[in-house]
Design a protein around this nucleic acid. Structure first.
Length: 656
RNA sequence: GCCGCAGUAGCUCAGUGGUAGAGCGCACCCUUGGUAAGGGUGAGGUCGGGAGUUCAAUCCUCCCCUGCGGCACCA
């Protein structure tokens, strides 16, 4: 007898082992039809798995929160199945579920083309229609390895050989195709449905290690319904429209060119955003007790050896010979014998030098030392990505030198600053994580215990919920991660906060404590915006280019309807400019429709239209970006209103 | 750096083994028009760079560069 307890608490008894299908059928025909898996005492299991002991069983249908993951997992198998049927000799490796879908990595000499993707997709749909049933077998480890080697699946054989001892070797069959898998799977291919689409092919290293062969990864997306699939594809379209590289070009903000790979040419409008942000964050830092410094770009390699960067970070540094290049015709430009300098990849070691000038007392601490430091990092070519991954970047960087007992307070203070700034930026959806000690680390565990606790205390005292990111800290100390969610639900990391016990030691920074003894300060590396480059990229995508008035490079365009209003337009523009607004005039010989369209495309937040009527009455017809109507206002009132709205949030708060 | 794809006018893109086209943009002319494209004319390209095949290459082949999508990297 097997007693099965259902979620409603009722108990059903069966003569012997029962499968999920049996149980579902005993409840209702329709449930049996909808069933795709079950939970036995809470563990997700195949529907066709016999239950031989008393247990609580929950039948899982497509309405279950975990159904989508099951469907995506099966879709990955479906993909592998279709590929092996169409391209015999292709080896399968792994095929996990990822955000929005799945992928499968294949070993095949010939590359897959986009035409192949279409063929594969068609074959996948056919296999769904064929409704191939799933079944599971448990094999002996050695037998499984022999089998997969024999059929030429060497990667699978390797995976099996590496499975932990004692783990069941489960083989899943979908019709006559089989694969090693931990499961669980849907009862048949029909249940996958057809709300899937193959998205792209890409290279990926076997086991993620660049020393291993490169496999071909096919990415797919899969959903529970066609409607969900369509919505997802629409989201992708939306994201593409927000791409900061595209908007940067369309709005004339910046450009890149091959001669300066990974470095930005900021155009006047793009740099205006930078200037506004920099002025804003500088004010925020000033009021929060920071001092600002400027340190050298180019420092001798000896210095980087001391800081530890030469051994740990050199492959990411730009190294420059300290010599005057030869101008002699035919001679090599550089002798190759000169001493080496390097462009700074970080500001921290230079800040320690300023700290070390003179003797510091415990009374001087904390010192919050800020720099809008321009750093260079020699990122791999393949990793560069618009403004988000560059080789020359400027951070709103600062280092807080403090005593250990000040860590919690300084962290709280930073968290408050961080929240203020992101709220002002319209980015208030932030998730906090505390990244703890990694396996490879410097320092004693007792110090790590204190450091992690100090950060956790600060988060808690600030009333913030947070998760731990175990083992994700830097080798020199734990850190806080700030995960922002943007307007279309994507997450970003920009700011950072890291505790460092190592660098003050390496560079011999010290202060004198109450007893007259020399002590090491703790260093907090922190950036609120992160880099201006990345942060501006983030803002552009978050706002889809429609920046709030205070950040918009051009805030108002005064556009004329007829040339009779030119003089008045200039007068109006001058008045708006006097209110501190960034204003342009459009006096061109074009129709007002054309002008409105063009400035709307340029995402100018406000268009002040003036014709003969407005000129007579000293008014403007104000049209806001995205609005379908306009409002006729007295010029002075319009200037006052726009001036107020364009005031950076911190200054507005100060006035109030 | 690795795998794949791509590179034609400022932008978006078409096209062909016989040295190139559209729309938008730009310039000029006409038009002074009331809230998302008024009309006309014109300028603009070493078809990413180099080599090869060919009578002839933007097109075919090879190498390089750059971009894009991933991977790896990311103090």
């Amino acid at each position: 007898m097997v007693a099965i307890t259902l979620p409603d608490g009722s108990v059903r008894r069966f003569d012997g082992p029962v499968t999920g299908t049996d149980i579902a059928e005993s409840i209702s025909k329709s449930l049996a039809k909808k069933a795709i898996a079950m939970r036995v005492d809470g563990a997700l299991t195949d529907l066709f798995e016999p239950v031989a002991r008393d247990a609580t069983v929950e039948i899982v249908t497509r309405d279950d929160p975990q159904a989508l993951e099951l469907v995506r997992h099966d879709a990955a198998h479906l993909l592998a199945q279709a590929v092996q049927e169409l391209y015999p000799g292709t080896q399968v490796t792994i095929g996990p579920v990822i955000e929005d879908g799945f992928y499968y990595d294949f070993a095949r000499d010939e590359p897959f083309s986009s035409d192949d993707l279409e063929r594969i997709e068609t074959r996948m749909a056919e296999i769904v229609d064929e409704d191939r049933p799933t079944r599971k077998e448990v094999w002996d480890r050695e037998e499984a390895i022999r089998h997969f080697k024999k059929i030429g699946e060497t990667y699978k054989a390797e995976i099996i050989a590496d499975l932990p001892e004692g783990e069941e070797i489960k083989i899943y069959w979908h019709g006559d195709w089989h694969d090693l898998c931990r499961g669980p799977h849907l009862p048949s291919t029909k249940h996958i449905g057809k709300a899937f689409k193959l998205m792209k092919v890409a290279g990926a290293y076997w086991r993620g290690d660049h020393r291993n062969p490169m496999l071909q990864r096919i990415y797919g997306t899969a959903w529970l319904s066609e409607k969900d699939l369509k919505a997802h594809l629409q989201r992708l379209d939306e994201a593409e429209k927000r791409d900061h590289r595209r908007l940067g070009r369309e709005l004339g903000l910046f450009h890149f060119q091959p001669e300066a790979q990974g470095s930005v040419f900021w155009h006047p409008k793009g740099y205006m955003i930078w200037r506004v942000l920099e002025a804003y964050i500088r004010r925020r830092q000033d009021e929060d007790g920071y001092v600002e410094v400027k340190t050298p770009q180019l420092l001798d390699s000896v210095f980087w050896e001391k800081s530890g960067h030469w051994s740990k970070f050199r492959e990411n540094m730009f190294v420059v010979p300290d010599e005057i290049p030869s101008t002699e015709e035919g001679k090599p430009v550089l002798s190759g014998e000169a001493g080496l300098m390097a462009l700074k990849p970080m500001n921290c070691p230079a800040h320690v030098q300023i700290f070390k000038q003179g003797v510091k007392s415990y009374r001087d601490l904390p010192i919050r030392m800020a720099e809008f430091g321009c750093c260079h990092r020699n990122e791999a070519h393949g990793g560069l990505h618009g403004l988000l991954r560059v080789r020359q970047m400027t951070q709103d960087d600062a280092h807080i030198f403090c005593r250990e007992d000040q860590i919690t307070d300084e962290t709280k203070r930073f968290l408050a600053l961080f929240a203020r700034v992101y709220d002002d930026m319209g980015l208030s959806d932030i998730r906090y994580k505390l990244a703890t000690r990694p396996e490879n680390r410097a320092g004693e565990d007792a110090v790590w215990d204190r450091a992690e606790k100090a950060l956790a205390d600060a988060l808690t005292a600030s009333g913030l919920d947070f998760d731990y990111a175990e083992g994700e800290g830097a080798f020199y100390g734990p850190k806080l991660e700030f995960h922002l969610t943007d307007a279309i639900g994507r997450t970003w990391q920009a700011g950072t906060f890291q505790l460092d016990y190592v660098l003050p030691e390496r560079l011999d920074a010290s202060y004198v404590d109450e007893t007259g003894a020399k002590r090491r300060p703790v260093m907090l590396h922190r950036a609120v915006l992160g880099t201006f480059e990345r942060f501006i990229g983030l803002l552009i995508e978050h706002y889809a280019g429609r920046l709030p008035l205070w950040l918009a490079p051009v805030q108002v365009v005064v556009a004329t309807i007829t040339s009779e209003a030119d003089d008045y337009a200039k007068e109006a523009a001058a008045l708006l400019a006097a209110k501190g607004l960034r204003v342009e005039t459009d006096l061109r010989n074009e129709k007002i429709n054309y002008k409105v369209r063009e400035h709307s495309h340029a995402k100018v937040p406000a268009i002040a239209v003036v014709g003969a009527r407005e000129a007579d009455e000293r008014k403007v017809s104000l049209r806001r970006l995205g609005a379908e109507r306009q409002e006729v206002l007295d010029l002075d009132e319009a200037a006052a209103r726009l001036g107020e709205e364009a005031t950076p949030p911190d200054l507005r708060a100060r006035k109030a």
